[in-house]
Write a protein that binds this DNA or RNA. Sequence first.
DNA 1: GTACTAATAAACAGGT
DNA 2: TACCTGTTTATTAGTA
Length: 573
Amino acid sequence: MQICVCVRACVSVAMMSPQVITPQQVQQILQQQQHLQEFYKKQQEQLHLQLLQQHPGKQVKEQQQQQQLAAQQLVFQQQLLQMQQLQQQQHLLSLQRQGLISLPPGQAALPGQTLPQAGLSPVELQQLWKDVTGPHNMDDGVIKHGGLDLSTSSSSSSTTSSAVSKASPPGAHHSMVNGQSRRESVPQEETAVSHSLYGHGVCKWPGCESICDDFGQFLKHLNSEHALDDRSTAQCRVQMQVVQQLEIQLSKERERLQAMMTHLHMRPSEPKPSQKPLNLVSSVTMLKTLPSASPPLLPQTPTAPAAPVTPLSQGPSVLSPASMASGGAIRRRHSDSIKHSLSMCSEIAPNYEFYKNADVRPPFTYATLIRQAIMEARDNQLTLNEIYSWFTTTFAYFRRNAATWKNAVRHNLSLHKCFVRVENVKGAVWTVDELEYQRRRSQKMTGSPTLVKNLPSGLGYGAALNASLQAALAESNMPLLGNAGLMNSSSTGLIHGCSPDQLNGCLDQLDSNGHSSPAYSPLHTYRLPIHIKEEPLNMDDEDCPMSLVTTANHSPELDDRELEEGNLSEDLE
DNA sequence: GTACTAATAAACAGGT
DNA sequence: TACCTGTTTATTAGTA
């Protein structure tokens, strides 16, 4: 820890007045660095000695100490790298000032200023690899890190090699022990397909590219050439830095994207007098509600901009399709296209905590939410009260204005044929007729006979996802559009040539882990006495003018309905 | 402008 | 009587 403090002091000294570094100061830093290296060497040897003196049986303890040593090494060497980079740049700067050399534009970077913006170009990385690889691999030549566009760089330069190799202990014992563990860490059953360091018959160890005819040979090569020695350690470190840089870059891109989205969402929209506080979720509200788990649930001002609040910064899930395109929510619902292009479980799962705590209206229809609630239940059935509870526990948004949304829930339960009321011993529970649910979806997509008549393009609801959203989703590699492989028409009778809506229909059958749940079988709801509702969606089906609610035990009428639906599905196909 | 969908509000009936 | 549950109708707003 002494080391760290010392190095940090050096670095900070170097960074304090980057513009007035004189050659003398550079010299001073160099001396300090040499001093540090010697000190570090001594420390390391001491630790090594201690390790050797340990009882050979106490492997666990030894490993722990090795880990500590490695950690210390890492910290120190990272500091060293940073310092050397600074040093190098300062040196170059001073040389440039003296007119000894001319630097290409952008390279005369002052550490504290342009360094964070200065990218670690592939060439630099390559040089870095060459350096840490040392003469051993100098002949290997090209290291392909193409595509790396690191806009930030807090470390690394082309002169790190000496320090790294110098700073590394000789440690034959060290490498032998770790070499063994290294071999253990590469199980033999690992296939060439799965090994990240092997591909196309080439060792993909950075800077290596040795040709290995088969995987066995590769393993041999890996164990012999890339055992855990100083060189490999240094290479590993560099790779860590590369990853670190990429992560920084990623976070920056994320921020940029978020800023873009915020900007787009915050476009001033004309406040409408008909807007109701309940349905408006302002960004101010989100900011207020996000940090607090308990929903204060204050009514929002009707004049608040209708900027949809999105869980942009919720963990790894940076953007959801919903959040990306839910900007159209003005009055009380988000864009239909958006809602239909969403997979409830795929959307809600990563943002569960968000919706739970933030007073944000979920971008799903009541029907979707109700279905999800029922599907999450143990027996795929819930009482009305349990549905209410699910709403309130899952979404902070539904912890207020109960009368409104509860009415909506009841309304939806009654309205949609896909929700089946089942008489139970305890009372009535609601289940989902998955077949009907999917049929409804497919109808929306392909259009009912009536709809088809009226739709000039025949695209129906499937075209709802606008081009910009699709482009955005495609650009962001949203799995939603990439999971076309999940699509098949076996269960839903969906037509081929999947629209996003269709995809949503299928994805809705996936559980939170993305697996298809057998519990979602459309047939399982028919086991119990059910009430069949006729949904107003299909006016053609309503031949029977009787009460819209009938009780049946999987009656022939039901079979007829299923039969009709089957035909319909076939027609749609 | 039209058709469609979803949200919302409200009325109503039946049950507890 | 009040409340809950369930159904139905009407209205409104967004979208294609």
